[in-house]
């Protein structure tokens, strides 16, 4: 099992003007193996979505590169690049309400990619759309309906069908379940897992629901303020977090079990995620970290492997 995607020092800044630079994604390196699900967690504002979008070329890269099957992807995508890479990489978006064009029928939405990127005839496209509607648990006669006629869970299935009809190898799922009810979340997760098996998909699963990420992912990556702080096997990261931020994040995740919850020592930390504008050197978590050292405010910790474990941690306490 080789690496499908290698992200090297990916960086994306947004210039606000007046010397203000948002460090949305800063120097993130990560590999994703073939048929692997990597879960990406972090608070809002940590740069998860920007990372996913920059990875797919929806944002231009400020620096760094993305290598897909040994081939470096363009730094700035031109329409022809989207045309070509759209069949290999796709995205499922967070909000099933705003990510579907309300003026297109479901059939048009799902079939658009095929229509633009293949030489299939209109009737063949239609056939495939019907096929996909059924694969994601909808009906063929839903084709002529409009998005507003569907519930959130059904819309998310439409978004999934739209992304997968081109049979991509790699899909970024950006919070695909956070807008859905619990009972429906499980439906969508099981659908994704099933399609991953049958199609041999590789997924980057972005979410803030830690329990769900642990459940679906092979490996888990934790982001804080634009940088990666910990990466390892999902269960290992969840059950024995090494970075103080991961510890806090997982310690704050309420478990559906009163005995665990009532016996839990409060691990909540003070403060909130700081502004990503003009970030200073040093560990980004330093001002909230319960275990902060002098060096943390001076030097930015590197993401280094933990001895004897398949785990990367960016923390001065570890080195």
């Amino acid at each position: 099992m080789g690496d499908l995607i290698e992200v090297r020092k990916l960086t994306r800044f947004f210039d606000l003007g007046g010397n203000q630079l948002v460090h949305a994604v800063d120097n993130v390196s990560l590999t994703i193996g073939e048929r692997e699900i990597v879960g990406l967690v972090g608070e809002s504002g940590s740069g998860k979505s920007t990372f996913g979008k920059t990875l797919l070329g929806l944002h231009d890269k400020t620096d760094g590169e993305v290598i897909f099957r040994g081939e470096a992807l363009p730094k700035k995508y031109r329409p022809a690049d989207f045309q070509k890479l759209g069949t290999k990489m796709q995205m499922v978006f967070q909000d099933p309400y705003s990510s579907l064009n309300p003026r297109m029928t479901v059939g048009e939405i799902i079939g658009e990619g095929l229509r633009l990127r293949s030489s299939l005839s209109a009737s063949d496209v239609k056939e495939q759309v019907v096929d996909w509607l059924e694969k994601v648990g909808l009906h063929a006669d839903h084709m002529s309906r409009y998005p507003h006629e569907f519930s959130g869970g059904q819309r998310q299935r439409i978004g999934i069908a739209r992304a997968l009809i081109l049979e991509p190898e790699f899909v970024v799922c950006d919070e695909p379940i956070s807008a859905l009810d619990v009972s429906v979340q499980a439906q969508v997760i099981n659908l994704l897992a099933e399609l991953k098996e049958t199609m041999g998909l590789t997924l980057l699963f972005i979410a803030h629901d830690l329990s769900m990420v642990r459940y679906v992912s092979d490996r888990m990556a934790v982001m804080y303020l634009g940088s990666l702080v910990e990466l390892g096997k999902a269960d290992e990261v969840y059950f024995s977090p090494k970075h103080p931020y991961t510890e806090v994040l997982i310690g704050s995740n309420p478990e559906p079990d009163p005995n665990t919850e009532k016996g839990r020592v409060s691990t909540s930390i003070q403060g909130e995620i700081p502004s990503p504008v003009n970030v200073r050197p040093g560990c980004r978590f330093a001002n909230r970290c319960p275990k902060v050292l002098y060096v943390c405010r001076e030097k930015t910790p590197e993401l280094i492997p933990l001895r004897g474990e398949d785990r990367l941690v960016a923390c001065h306490l570890i080195s």
Binding site: G153, V182, S183, V184, A186, S211, Y215, E255, P256
Partner: peptide, 24 residues
């Protein structure tokens, strides 16, 4: 019961496959 089975449990001793509640 359905709600509980549709949620992941973070308990290695009680791993289970998520069981969605079908329908609406």
């Amino acid at each position: 019961v359905g709600l509980k089975e549709a949620m992941p449990m973070n308990d290695p001793a009680r791993q289970h496959v998520l069981k969605p509640i079908d329908g609406s």
